[in-house]
């Protein structure tokens, strides 16, 4: 065995690996979230693989969005919120005080329930992130990033002739794909999606789901969804949250065919628990 192979194997051994043998991108250990006195998220341990889609499901108020917001430290913006435990991305502790939160949020993009394009042109919506992070030195580099991002988001052919038009003038589905283009323009590793299709019609939903399926080859995607069918369609792994705890996590096929926990079964089949 040559030296580099041995070194590589050593590195692989020390890196967290998910049950499927995929390298874990995001690793959470004993994560707790408190909103004032309320213990909103309890002792969450999970390994989220790279280059795949992980779905977070669970009833409203179960903690899934709270946990999602821990991964790019969005909860920092809430004064009463306290997060304990450890979350790493690529083995780096994201709650390390020396870490630049702005840089973190560039690496961990987020797409929200309601499309929220800036009241700017389509071009500027996508160019905004690369500009503030200094990713483009010249105008043509910036144009290249905008074009590539819109192409990856499957929106390029629909907007290429009207890049100067306002982003808010697009249809709901187009706006959501614009937000995805905006998220990927800054070269993130992780994309968080909080119910990205709940405000979209079935056609726009199908387009966003197709996009998610394409993006998973290059990104670690985590999606919160209330649609069981959507979780089953787009994700490879599913985590079920209930009353602030992570009840069960595993391959999506298994979770939706033979869940192990009664609470998971009751929730996904629409039973009273």
């Amino acid at each position: 065995m040559d030296m580099s192979a041995a070194t590589r194997m050593e590195a692989e051994r020390s890196a967290p690996v998910t049950a499927q043998g995929l390298p874990a991108k995001v690793v959470a250990r004993d994560v707790n979230v408190f909103y004032g006195e309320k213990h909103a998220l309890k002792h969450v341990d999970v390994d989220i693989p790279d280059r795949g889609v992980t779905a977070f499901i669970g009833p409203s108020g179960c903690g899934k969005s709270t946990f999602l917001r821990c991964i790019n430290r969005m909860n920092d913006t809430i004064a009463s919120c306290k997060v304990t435990g450890k979350i790493t991305i690529d083995n780096r502790d994201i709650y390390d005080p020396s870490l630049d939160v702005v840089q973190l949020r560039a690496r961990v993009g987020m797409v929200f329930q309601k499309p929220n394009p800036f009241p700017k042109s389509i071009f500027d919506n996508v160019a905004y992130g690369p500009k503030i992070h200094g990713l483009a030195r010249t105008k043509s580099e910036l144009e290249a990033i905008v074009t590539a991002s819109l192409e990856k988001a499957g929106l390029w052919s629909e907007v290429k002739d009207r890049l100067g038009d306002s982003g808010t003038g697009l249809s709901g589905g187009q706006q959501q794909r614009l937000c995805i283009a905006r998220a990927i323009a800054v070269n993130p590793d992780v994309i968080l999606m909080d119910e990205p299709c709940s405000a979209l019609d079935p056609i726009a939903t199908a387009k966003v789901e197709t996009l998610i399926d394409e993006l998973r080859a290059n990104y670690c995607i985590i999606i919160v969804t209330h649609s069981m069918q959507q979780a089953a369609r787009v994700s490879q792994r599913t985590a079920f949250f209930h009353l602030g705890t992570l009840v069960e996590e595993g391959p999506t096929e298994r979770i939706f065919s033979t869940p192990r926990d009664q609470r998971t079964q009751d929730y996904i089949t629409g039973r009273t628990g």
Binding site: F256, Q265, T269
Partner: peptide
Amino acid sequence: RQPIANDLR
């Protein structure tokens, strides 16, 4: 109903 898990079985 788009049944899943034991319902689909």
